[in-house]
Amino acid sequence: MSGDAPRISGSSVVKLARGVRLREDPVRGQTVLLAPESAMALDDIAVAIVEALDGKRSLERIAADFAEKFDAPVARIAEDVETFIHELAVRRMLEIVE
């Protein structure tokens, strides 16, 4: 039995694990990421990142696409993506596609 957590890097392709889903919450006027025993209210950037986890693009690719779309420095966006993805990974909310 290995206790090693799967490594996630810029070249990883990930998607939301089954049982984790994005939902509109009309009563509170927000978007939430639902998982067992947790409901995370997301800001617009986080929603955009979650929606970009299509199981096809790597995290680097996603950051580069955002940088182009929002005309922002890729390094800063890559850092945002990485921080958020790490948080989701620790909570077992992601599935690593490759």
Binding site: G3, D4, A5, P6, E37, A89, V90, R91, R92
Partner: peptide, 10 residues
């Protein structure tokens, strides 16, 4: 610590 990212322990 050992199972971080593998198993969430509540």
């Amino acid at each position: 610590e050992k199972y971080q990212g593998v198993l969430v322990i509540d």
